[in-house]
Amino acid sequence: MKPSGHRRGASLFRIQGTLAPRPRAILWVLSFLVPLLAWSAVSYVPWIWHPLVEVSEPGDVRWFTPGMRVDEQAFDRANALVAKNAGTLAVGTPANPVFLPAPHEVARALFTSFATPPRLSEEMWLHESLLHSMRTIALGFLISSLIGIPLGIACGAIPAMARLSEPFLEFFRYLPAPAFGALCVAVLGINDAPKIAIIFIGTFFQQVLVVANTVRRVEPSLIEAAQTLGAPPRHQLLRVVVPASIADLYTDQRVLLGWAWTYLVVAELIGTSSGITYFINLQAKYRAYDNVMAAILIIGVVGLGSDLVLAWIGRRLFPWRKDAKPGLGALFRRRSGKPVVLEGAA
């Protein structure tokens, strides 16, 4: 082996190493492919797991019906009994429990769950459930942000504000949001309001503290520089503290939005269950676990998708960042930057 080839292989997992675009893309695909392959292996390779037998021909076993899944030992015992009486043996294939559908079943369910009308007229289509869930999250997160971000900025910038509000917020954020479910229903009724309130409670307290911490990391010398340039406190806040932290605050909101998603299912169970959670519970009741898995996957896809979109926007929103990409940033400046000649003008 060439020494250079050996070094390249080793460098892929080097501590704090950098990744070229190709390995980056390959690893991204692998991170999804590996779990998918594991799932496929468990689903399609008969000797991996498969603790049950799916009956295809009941034979003379009276309590068997085609399509029934029984424990492997129970299947053997029943067949042994039939064999003793010289009856027809039941035939079956190794199978997994019904709650672990194979990838292709879930993929089919993904398609059909969007394409099939609901079984009862008052039930919702999957996409309607999904939109309802997204609306709940958006409203909860929006209300939280409208109060939480300004309060967090105030806490981060003004120590007295932090001292006044943070000890209580620190205490309150340990109270689990779902615990307020009953209270929210009592106060806000059984429809969407208590669900939005749970998302709010789950997000708000973290949000204020996270925003405050980010704002506290603003370089003090930037504020001092503004002071020596004659900036009054209002401008120190609005024209230094806020822009200095806004790019990091944007990233914080992406993380917080992810947390809001984790509160979604609990929130939707409160009062009358609704949205994607209602769909999941209903399908579980019908024992349509392929639909359940499909719905769970959809939550993941929508969550990851929205984060990727926000990341993409973020790289274009703050043109002063080193990793900035041109695009939306052009909206915020009047003229584009000229090519840089670093040492030239010295």
Partner: peptide, 21 residues
């Protein structure tokens, strides 16, 4: 009495506002 426009300051570290051209 406090910082003011009559005394400009250039710091050792770079204190330009990174978000402004």
């Amino acid at each position: 009495d406090g910082p003011g426009r009559d005394r400009g300051m250039v710091f050792q570290g770079y204190t330009l506002f990174p978000w402004l051209t």
